[in-house]
Amino acid sequence: MSDDWWDVPGNPYAPSLAEPPAGPEVPDSASPKSGPQRQDEDDLCTPYATAEGLALEAASAALVRLDCGLAASSPAVAAGWINRMAIEEAAASARLNGILVDTADLRLLAWDSLDRAPDPDLAQALPLYDLVRRITARHPRHLYTPRRLAALDRIRHSRSPGFSLWSDAEEDVGAEQRWAVLQAALAPDALARFRAAPALVGAAAFLAHWHEVGADRSAGAALGRLLAAWWPARQGLVQGRRGGQDMVEGSDTYDGPTHPAYAGGPVLMPSIGFLGHAMDYRPDRRDGWLSAYLMAAGRSVARGEALLRRLRAAEGGLAEALRPRRSTSRGPQVAAFLLSQPVVTSGRLAQALDMSGTAARSLLDALHRDHLLMEISGRDAYRAYIVE
């Protein structure tokens, strides 16, 4: 992204202000001021003057509020939130790439519960979910240098054949070209300019820069969106990680997303905010991009807040239904597992908690009859459930 992006007339988010030209002194009341200035400095309730300033203030406050809500939630609720939002982010990111998939089908496919062969669109969206799941399991400080980002691809290739960090990159891009573009996209001077801006403005600028240098083609547009999702955590606006009871001290990764204690990942999921507003996703255009990104961030956070409220309500209902009646009861463990998993089957529940298949099926059927679980597979056998 060129330097003059920050110098667009009226842009209140330039990281540095140019020195005023020499001339006669002007009274403070008459001197021009840049940035989201209030009309009356003595009135803290006076709204900011620009639409972008209002959108920035609203989206930033909502993002911090959601982050505090996740931090105050139980590990199972936080894990369930990130697991469900990761699926929605993957489906929304696929749509921005021109791949139309149903979120429910992607959820079933990603968690081995789809009873049919996936169609070509679903098969293309599944690597994007894998990308979201693995990137959200990293610490943000290990994602913004070309060498560490490329190393993540090599490590995952050796541990999980079939995974590629460049899942939606163009096929005709060579390794040398990708490396050169990554160096340009993650250049320290560019990142320094973005860090000088408010967190969400820096995220929008980073994504615009990612497209301008061609990293969307050589490394993938989805990867750029995920790096932008981590930017508020990198800037300290929200927490970078929330440790569960199995967090390894000093580790740069979180517990696996399938683990009930998994509670890491970014709070902002930018692709979700463009659902129904795909025409606004134009980071390659300067005009209107900042406003579009801030509005999308607000919509994404609102969706995340609604999901968190539903999970907290479900937690109360499950706690009441599974209240321990004896010391050996597994009710709390069952409730935590159901909340943390986006899809639950009797086989997975029985394996995770060392139960018999018959007991697991009976328990899930009872919770379904009490309307605490929703059946999503539409099958008479091998049914799949979700907590929403």
Rank of each mutant, 00 (worst) to 15 (best):
L223I: 03
I272S: 10
G256W: 04
W230F: 15
L227Q: 00
G220W: 10
A215K: 09
D255Q: 14
A204S: 11
W230L: 08
A229G: 06
V201Q: 07
V213W: 00
P270S: 12
Q235G: 04
A222V: 06
W230N: 05
A222H: 06
Q245A: 14
R217M: 03
L226T: 10
G224V: 02
A208F: 02
W231H: 14
V267F: 04
D216N: 15
A222I: 05
G265E: 03
Y262T: 06
G256N: 05
A233S: 05
L207Q: 15
V267I: 14
F206Y: 13
L268C: 13
M247R: 07
A263P: 01
V248P: 08
L200I: 04
W231K: 10
A263I: 01
R217A: 08
W231Q: 10
A233R: 00
G214H: 02
A222P: 04
G214K: 01
F206N: 10
A229C: 04
A219R: 02
M247P: 03
S218D: 00
L207W: 07
W231P: 12
A263W: 02
H211E: 14
L227W: 02
T258G: 14
A205G: 14
D252A: 09
L207H: 11
Q235I: 02
Q245E: 08
P260M: 02
G202E: 03
A204H: 08
W231A: 06
D246H: 15
A261H: 11
W231T: 01
L237E: 13
L223P: 07
H211I: 07
M269R: 04
A208E: 02
A208C: 00
L237Q: 13
G236E: 06
A222M: 10
L227N: 01
H209C: 09
F206H: 09
R217L: 05
P260F: 03
D255C: 15
V267M: 15
W210F: 14
Y262N: 11
V248C: 12
